[in-house]
Simulated scan of single mutants.
Amino acid sequence: MAGKDDKPTVIVRRVKKIQGGGHHGGSWKVAYADFVTAMMAFFLVMWLVGALTTKQREAISDYFKNPSPMKGTSPAPSPGMNGPGGASNSMIKLGGTMELPKGPGKEFTRDPGDQQNEAEKRQQDRQRLEQLMQDLKEAIDKSQALEPFKDQLLLDITPEGLRIQIVDKQNRPMFDLGSAKLMPYTVGILHEIAGFVNRVPNRVSIAGHTDTANYASRFGYSNWELSADRANAARRALLEGGMDAAKVARVVGFGAAVLFDRQNPLNPINRRISIVVMSKEAEDAALGQSESLPVPVAAAAAAQPAASAPSPAAVATQAAN
């Protein structure tokens, strides 16, 4: 039994009052930052949309309806890398507002009309080169100075542009033997060509070619150096004939790598100068302005010489005409 002096134990619990609402952590700061970021993104989008023309906004709307590089207005999902309805593999160029085209007549990058305009420009470019070829043929037919060399001037349209080839003939070479010195009549031919080349805005590519006969008169000097020197000699003659110096986009020597007559590597016709009035697409590729064409057109031609050079039979036909 407990004694009379025993007292019950009293436990006092005090509740601590927190003044001012207490500390709630930093979660509200994260939410506020998200809100501010969303508002900034919203106003940025509104500003960009406001900087576009009506036609550009329509082009953007059309892209999201049909995210395909092909022209069309179908709202159906385009087939992407993951099948129909999957992610589209078409590329969208992203950049700042400094890259946005402004003013009337300027169209947005994804505007389907751009593809049509590019096709029209290529067609006009080809028509211009075909007309130049026709004018050259007529001039060669009418010129008494060029009449003796008619069978040494070969004209054709290639994927790179209008190609004018001046080829050697037995007992009528363009250069002194083993030299880059032009014969007087070759200078006259190049002077005549220079006037025609200046009629069009297209740039030109000049290439020198040799046969497979070894060049051994100087140590370290081969057909590669000889063909490059001959191409440069042709360039100088064209400039003397009045061609604008800024029109030259490329001067190269191929040596005997791209033979005209592959069946007979020593045929004099393999020794030639090729002047190409370049198409706009080939010009961009040669000057490194096109990311879609990383391999120069000349390199592609070198890889497939039979497809780019006329056959000897075709030369005989042209000579007969």
Rank of each mutant, 00 (worst) to 15 (best):
Y221P: 10
F219H: 01
L266H: 12
M98K: 13
D176P: 02
G20R: 07
L129F: 01
H191Q: 14
A139K: 11
M70T: 07
L177A: 05
R122G: 14
S308D: 09
T186R: 02
G72R: 07
S279E: 07
H23M: 11
N171W: 02
G86L: 09
L287P: 03
R126D: 12
D34W: 08
I189R: 02
A306P: 09
W28L: 07
Q289A: 13
G26N: 10
A286V: 01
E160K: 02
P69S: 15
M278I: 00
A307S: 11
A231K: 00
V251Y: 06
D151Y: 00
K181Q: 09
V295Q: 09
R14P: 05
G25Y: 12
A87D: 13
F149Q: 06
A314S: 12
L162E: 06
G83T: 13
L44K: 03
Q116R: 15
L182N: 12
G220M: 06
M98R: 13
K150T: 07
F108T: 13
I206N: 03
V251I: 04
A180W: 06
N202A: 14
A87M: 13
G105E: 07
S290T: 14
G83F: 00
F64W: 14
P310D: 04
E120G: 09
K137N: 15
A319D: 10
Q116S: 08
Y221I: 04
D211L: 04
T53C: 02
E192A: 14
T37C: 01
A2C: 09
G242T: 12
N66P: 08
D111F: 00
L155P: 02
Q170W: 00
A309Q: 11
N321C: 06
G85R: 08
V248Y: 02
G178V: 03
E147F: 05
L132P: 01
A194K: 09
P112D: 10
A216S: 12
R172W: 05
T37V: 08
R128Q: 08
G220A: 10
